[in-house]
Design a binder for these strands. Structure first.
Lengths: 220, 220
DNA sequence: GATAGTTTCATACAAGTGTTTGAATTGCAA
DNA sequence: TTGCAATTCAAACACTTGTATGAAACTATC
């Protein structure tokens, strides 16, 4: 193991560069230059470029997932195995939003990297994301316990919409700021979390009527 | 101008290949092979690879935007300059959802291309997307007229969330199907539209002026 | 301090990229 | 037909990419 100084220097440089300039136009040569390290070091320590990216993404996303599950577990234990839907949704979208939004100048490199990973979609990351389904299933289960009257379909749609609002807000935060001429304050993370949770909760609890209406609206 | 057969053959081949395999690993050589055309033809007819991609994306997205505005204008005229919020939202997300979802085997190449463009994000497309803000402002205006009591901030957040649900559902349709084990039927486009519009409407009207239960929206 | 195992380094490699070139071919008008 | 522009073509260009190599420089153990 000696000194893995080189190893972590590469990781840090790669994270910073990918965060700033995206996966598209950052080459191994850029990374090793930034890290003051030899070109061959990447392949020596990580095997390949893709494995470097994967390691970067995995370590960040398991941290987020762990935080999500920690909040979920705490909420369900406190509620005797059944947590309020708002709290579940907050555990789902809170960690991601808190990690990726907030005042830009105090936004961590890790956070900016994860934003990149959510905007661009590069093969090694896509492969990892596909394994996230099991993780989401745990939330679907908690939501089902919280809203036993709701159909599975509605639960899944609610979960989908909650993630949609969180991720899209992160991805397009710049555009929303520009569109609203700064009126939507994306640095106020807790307000964003509250808005997302509120809408998702309403979507899951309002309109008791059976959702799947037989009346079909014909398009075009 | 003679025969622009070559030109359109390239466009068709590029659209098909990009739709199927993504921008990442489709080269000019792949495209010209698919189009049975010489390699130099792309640069001759389009100037560069990026301009080819841009032309492809522009033509598709102005078609969508035109359809959106057509629906919006019709709705506002019918309501005397003020359309119901549900109808506005439907005009916003309907065309995109209808264009990108639906039974896969009968999904047009154009639709599949637009899905790709929404998943991967390649420089020439990103540049064009940034010009979409003016287009969205028109919808923000219509929404403000429809809900004069609502603050601008709320309007923009509602707009953001509506787009979020539509785009995320398109981007992650495969994952949602897998997660729900097929229970969420993404081929039933009108149901998806209704769900998105319903949630977005609730988000925009909840806790304020009551506009009846916005459960089921029927348009046209 | 010799030895064996890591780690670093300069360099080369092979493959692929978009683009350019200049000659051939085509199509059409005079 | 002839002439001329538009188009097509094969080939090469210039460059970048990730990866591999084998020697050199370390490091720790005996």
């Amino acid at each position: 193991m000696a000194s893995d100084h080189t190893r972590s220097a590469i990781l840090a440089a790669a994270e910073r560069l990918y965060a700033d300039r995206g996966f598209g136009d950052v080459t191994l040569r850029d990374i090793v230059a930034e890290a003051n390290v030899n070109l061959a070091a990447v392949n020596y320590h990580f095997g390949s470029k893709d494995e470097l990216i994967a390691e970067l993404f995995v370590s960040r996303s398991i941290a987020t997932n762990r935080e999500r599950l920690r909040e979920l577990k705490a909420a369900e234990e406190q509620g005797g195995g059944r947590a309020p839907i708002e709290v579940i949704l907050r555990a789902l979208v809170g960690p991601t939003l808190r990690g990726c939004l907030g005042p830009e100048n105090q936004r961590s490199t890790a956070a900016r990297f994860m934003i990149r990973a959510s905007i661009e979609s590069v093969p090694p990351i896509r492969r990892i994301k596909n394994r996230e389904i099991d993780h989401l299933r745990k939330f679907a289960g908690a939501m089902r316990r919280s809203l036993p009257d709701r159909s599975d379909v509605d639960i899944y749609w609610g979960l989908n919409f909650a993630l949609a609002m969180a991720h899209h807000t992160i991805r397009e935060s710049e555009r929303l700021t520009k569109l609203s001429e700064g009126k939507c304050d994306l640095d106020d993370v807790e307000d964003v979390v509250a808005r997302v949770v509120s809408v998702a909760t309403t979507a899951l609890t309002a309109g008791r009527t059976e959702t799947k209406a037989p009346s079909r609206v014909v398009a075009r």
